[in-house]
Design a protein around this nucleic acid. Structure first.
Length: 569
RNA sequence: CGGGGCGUGGCGCAGCAUGGCUAGCGCGCUUGCUUUGGGAGCAAGAAGUCGCUGGUUCAAAUCCAGUCGCCCCGACCA
């Protein structure tokens, strides 16, 4: 490809709309342009990177026996009603009507359509297992699209769905996909981790998120460097060490705490640390009002609570409800004398002489102990943070930021039951198919590569994702000898199957260098009069600071060696 | 949905408070000459319904109202 012929609108200045580095660089490097909030056009350079990611995905999925299909973006309401998601999905599901007033939507995901397809076509256990996938546009009407292509409304996703005859088959499919994902992200050149994610009602360790490690990531990963445990913040479990406590009973005392509602205010007023307090949160749930106790300086993890209690719906109670069930106003709730069911975080079990609300205006109680009230049990209910203990080895947790690029999930019978996707087993008996689903944010993967690889001059992309592998850069296009060699090198590399661009533009050298750096091309070959005089050209790797001088006869060989080396990583 | 900010040639901005000449600046773009190893120099150009609609006024980028778009922050922890 000739640089002069390619549509690469680079920018020196950053459009004000961009906040994060990947977004800024994608705009500056001419990868994408915004059409509307969260909706982007991919330009030739960006599309090349996107296609490279797609290619890796296709190869690895195919290797595992998954088969590519392509499903519609526009879908009828009926299927979504069947799965009950027409009601449940919320506003992210963009709905509208066609000319005949039929309700339709833009697909945010494809469980419904793929399940419909398979239930119609697959009848026998002999046709299972089956893994289908597609790389396709999704539309999710996000509350707040941001960070360019990282959280867009319209985006490219690879989604795969597995259908098995039984649990063990489904597990095998899951592991198969897990393996494929590991290979995909390795080939993309990422530094990443597979972390345990929330599995909701299904439970078990059958959901993993694939996180690209980057300081600018939106997600927090809790991990243990000792045993390798890793989970997202939502799920991360916390280990505990048993400890003797005094178990006093009835020693608590009322204290006046006028107007002190917040943990910090109460702590300050009483002259104690916030971790000597216990806060009592009142929730409205589908199982009635529920009280949750957690140490003053920690936060309830609602996902853990929901999973523990099997809650469908939960939300913090309003002031009115609080007054009704506790007898005191918001800010003064405590466990003593409460009539509603209570669950407590494990921390509470090991606390002694703590402070809690008095269920009365302007009153707290001090020197409270667990013997003073009744709870249904002590559980891991708080959100993990660094320094907490690993559930497996009791070493300390650390926190890292990451960008979620992939998510695999065992669905079980959720959709097959709702939509009646069945097959006949070898005994002639009708059974539900056991499903799994597996997603990769393809456009986000490109952005993640930039978040992970950049410097002050622009992108520093892994060779697997960079739009080109090599940039051949003649310093002066009017110098015949330079141009001749440049063309020669360019053609030779093309012949070797290397993805190369020749910067044949009649621009100043600085401009060409800046552009080359900006778009993150891993290998640059500079051909200039100065070096050529002695029979040399210069090779520079994007990620290295220094360049090397190479005899012009050896240049092809050196470049190929570099490309292969970079591909190995 | 709540709060904040922004909207002026392709990009980044100034001008607006206190309305008034031909709406400026930098980058980019076009042409010519010079230049050619890290975003060049000189010269000459092209390009803007000041987001849109309505209002106030002799006069609106500037004041008022409405509207659209974009960005940021937040969305309940007692």
């Amino acid at each position: 490809m000739l640089f002069s012929k390619m549509f690469i609108p680079t920018m020196k200045e950053v459009p004000k709309e961009a906040e994060v580095v990947s977004h800024k660089l994608m705009l500056r490097a001419g990868f994408i342009r915004r059409l509307a909030s969260g909706i982007y056009t991919w330009l030739p350079l960006g599309l090349r990177s996107l296609r490279k990611v797609e290619k890796i995905i296709r190869e690895e999925m195919d290797k595992k026996g998954a088969q590519e299909i392509l499903m519609p973006l526009v879908q009828p309401k009926e299927l979504w009603v069947e799965s009950t998601r027409w009601e449940k999905y919320g506003k992210e599901l963009l709905r509208f009507v066609d000319r005949n007033n039929r309700d339709i939507c833009l697909a945010p995901t494809h469980e419904e359509v793929v399940t419909d397809l398979v239930r119609r076509e697959v009848r026998s256990y002999k046709e299972l297992p089956l893994i289908l996938y597609q790389i396709q546009t999704k539309f999710r009407d996000e509350i707040r699209p941001r960070f360019g292509v990282m959280r867009g409304r319209e985006f490219t996703m690879k989604d795969a769905y597995s259908f098995d005859m039984d649990e063990s088959g489904a597990e095998a499919s899951y592991l198969n996909m897990y393996d494929a994902y590991m290979n995909i992200f390795k080939r993309c050149g990422f530094s990443f981790r597979a972390v345990e994610a929330d599995t909701g009602q299904i439970g078990g360790s059958f959901s993993h998120e694939f996180m690209v490690l980057a300081d600018t990531g939106e997600d927090i990963i809790i991990s243990c460097s000792n045993c390798g445990y890793a989970a997202n913040l939502e799920r991360a479990e916390i280990g505990f060490v048993e400890r003797e406590t005094s178990r006093k009973k009835g020693a608590f005392k009322r204290v006046e705490t006028p107007g002190k509602k917040k943990i910090d205010d109460v702590a300050q007023f009483l002259g104690v640390a916030p971790d000597k307090l216990v806060k009592t949160l009142i929730y409205n749930t589908d199982q009635g009002v529920l009280g949750v106790l957690v140490k003053g300086d920690r936060e309830v993890n609602e996902t853990k609570l929901r999973n523990l209690m099997g809650l469908e719906y939960m939300e913090l109670a309003d002031e009115e409800t609080i007054e009704k069930v506790t007898g005191g106003p918001l800010g003064f709730s405590g466990p003593i004398g409460l009539k509603i069911p209570l669950v407590a975080d494990m921390d509470i079990l090991f606390m002694e002489d703590f402070v809690a609300g008095g269920n009365e205006r302007d009153v707290h109680v001090v020197e409270v102990n667990v013997e003073d009230f009744a709870v249904k049990g002590f559980y891991d209910l708080k959100t993990a943070q660094p320094g907490d203990l690993c559930p497996r080895c009791r070493d300390k947790h650390t926190a890292t930021k990451g960008i979620e690029v992939g998510h695999i999930f065992k669905l079980g019978l959720k959709y097959s039951k709702a939509m009646n996707a069945t097959f006949l087993d070898n005994g002639g008996k009708e059974q539900y198919m056991v499903m799994g689903c597996y997603g990769i944010g393809v456009s986000r993967t490109v952005a993640a590569a930039i978040e992970q690889g950049h410097d002050e001059n622009g992108m520093v992309l892994p060779i697997a994702i960079a739009p080109f592998e090599v940039d051949v850069l003649p310093v002066n296009t009017s110098h015949a000898e330079s141009m001749e060699l440049a063309n020669q090198v360019y053609k030779a590399l093309l012949d070797k199957g290397i993805d190369v661009i020749l910067d044949d533009r009649d621009e100043r050298t600085g401009v060409k260098f800046k552009d080359c750096d900006l778009i993150g091309i891993p290998v640059r070959v500079t051909i200039g009069e100065r070096n050529l005089k002695d029979g040399y050209v210069e090779i520079k790797l994007r990620r290295e600071k220094e360049s090397e001088r190479v005899k012009k006869e050896d240049v092809i060989e050196r470049i190929i060696a570099h490309v292969e080396e970079l591909k190995r990583v």
